[in-house]
């Protein structure tokens, strides 16, 4: 068994591109994951005429996958319109990097979240955001598509790990099809909470395990 990372991941980890801050950024965001402990900060400059990302930089307090993904997405997003950049997925970044170990998916998804949050920050500042909608099961499900199943590297929705979701009076309850003693149970729980808790009208997130 060799190194779990592709040559390209190692290359970007050793020599990350577009590292640093943009002092007069048009949009910036910090995304952090208490589950992994990783954190990423993304800065963008946007051309107001064309809504194109003209410059992008990132900083990472994270592991190799986080640093490599942060680096590759800055390259991928540069020159794209904000609408195009929003469509970049974790899978696109992973493909571009020549693959990532499944167990590391959640560290690298954070970089994608950072990019989307930076764009959202730009949109908020420039009045481009639509009205806030109340949280529904569909919205929760959509967010859970960014919680990774460390066993497969695919998200928890795609891998049928979510048994049931309910949203009631600001309380989101999520039933996970996994034994509570499972090796990754705690990591998945923290990841779920981290993705759902920031929703504007959510007061509490409960995660239950059981097969």
């Amino acid at each position: 068994m060799g190194m779990p990372y592709s040559e390209k991941v190692i290359e970007y980890f050793k020599n990350p591109k577009n590292v640093g801050k943009i002092e007069d950024a048009d949009g910036k965001a910090k995304e952090g994951s208490p589950a992994c402990g990783d954190m990423v900060q993304v800065y963008i400059k946007v051309d107001k005429e064309t809504q194109t990302i003209t410059d992008i930089k990132f900083e990472s307090y994270g592991c190799a996958s986080n640093i490599a993904t942060g680096s590759i997405i800055t390259e991928m997003a540069k020159g794209k319109t904000i609408e195009e950049a929003k469509q970049i997925t974790w899978q696109d970044a992973a493909d571009e990097l020549g693959g990532l170990p499944p167990v590391k998916a959640h560290c690298s998804v954070l970089a994608i979240d950072g990019l989307r949050a930076a764009i959202q920050n730009y949109e908020e500042k420039h009045g481009l955001l639509k009205d806030q909608k109340p949280t529904t099961v569909e919205i929760v499900e959509d967010r859970l598509k960014r919680v990774m199943n460390p066993m497969t590297g695919l998200d928890v929705i795609k891998t049928d790990l979510i048994h049931d979701i309910s949203v009631e009076d600001g309380v989101v309850t999520i039933y996970v099809d996994l034994d509570e003693d499972h090796q990754f149970a705690n990591a998945i729980k923290e990841d779920i909470k981290e993705k759902i808790e920031p929703l504007w009208d959510v007061q509490r997130v409960e995660v239950h395990f059981g097969e």
């Binding site: 402990g37 167990v103 460390p150 090796q183």
Partner: peptide
Amino acid sequence: GSACFSRSLEA
């Protein structure tokens, strides 16, 4: 002792 290094992804 980083979570990223552990088998269970826990710190």
